[in-house]
């Protein structure tokens, strides 16, 4: 039986963290560590790439694997280079919604189209939390943020469907309330060849909480009451959205090189 103490000693460093009390980022770190432990792959074969933002801090100072902390929105291009350069690595991209869907949205579409073997975790709290709580592409209609104090006038983007129709192999959505399911999903993505994208709805008790008057605990309760695993019911659907087997970019590139007599490293 794995206890928190074993996980903390093996996978976590620099704690206590800079995350706010009740933040979902620590829970995602917990889920990622447990998934890597359960899948049984070597910790030295895992590399994590992150951009800028609260969620990008999950791997870079706190996770005990090799990490790249890159520029804003450019986590996926850096990860693509890393994966093509060394295809034995298990590359995970951990990124927030402002970083992954806002600033680096274009990169996300093309990585999904190329279907490169990356595991992307997008931690969605619905706003740019680190810079003060400004409106993001994923902010729901009518939600109050720092720059939309009377409610968001535009609609939020359904990023899972965007990635699904761009051609990703595996797309799923979970929340921080569904910890066991999230661990199983991350463990599954490690085995999947192709682009896997998991959207994790996560609470922000400081920015959303201040504007909407909710604590981290109340937001977790909101996720429990407003999510559903049945596609016909009303509410936010959580679970697997797409799984298809498609050709993978790294394998194609290596095949082309070896066909022409080259020796890929």
């Amino acid at each position: 039986m794995i206890t928190t103490k074993d996980i903390r000693n093996k996978y976590v460093k620099n704690y206590p963290s800079a995350f706010c009390p009740g933040c979902g980022d620590g829970m995602v770190l917990n889920a990622m560590s447990r998934a890597v432990e359960k899948s049984g792959i070597d910790q030295k074969k895992v590399a994590a790439v992150s951009g800028i933002g609260c969620a990008a801090w999950i791997p870079s100072p706190y996770w005990k694997v090799d990490t790249l902390h890159t520029t804003h929105g450019r986590a996926i291009p850096h990860a693509t280079g890393l994966k093509v350069g060394n295809k034995d690595l298990e590359v995970m991209v951990v990124s927030g919604d402002g970083d992954c869907a806002g600033i680096g949205g274009n990169h996300l579409l093309h990585a999904a189209r190329n279907n490169i073997d990356l595991n992307v975790l997008m931690i969605n709290n619905g706003l740019y939390a680190m810079t003060g709580g400004q409106v993001a592409p994923t902010t729901e209609h009518g939600e109050k943020t720092l720059t939309t104090p009377y409610g968001n006038p535009s609609q939020g983007i359904d990023i899972c469907n965007v990635v699904k129709h761009s051609g990703a192999s595996h797309v799923a959505r979970w929340t921080t309330y569904h910890m066991n399911e999230l661990i199983k999903e991350i463990e599954r993505t490690i085995d999947i060849k192709g682009f896997s994208f998991i959207e994790v709805l996560s609470q922000c008790p400081t920015r959303t909480g201040k504007k909407e008057g909710l604590s981290g605990v109340e937001m977790l309760e909101w996720y429990r009451e407003n999510t559903t695993k049945n596609k016909e019911e009303e509410g936010i659907y959580v679970g697997e959205i797409q799984y298809v087997e498609r050709t993978e970019l790294t394998e194609e590139i290596y095949e082309q090189i070896s066909k022409r007599g080259g020796k890929p490293r």
């Binding site: 206890t3 928190t4 996980i7 976590v12 963290s17 933040c23 917990n30």
Partner: peptide, 14 residues
């Protein structure tokens, strides 16, 4: 409690 703790503070030992 172990699974939900964001700060890795709780360990249940049995």
């Amino acid at each position: 409690c172990e699974l939900f703790c964001p700060d890795f503070a709780i360990t249940v030992e049995k």
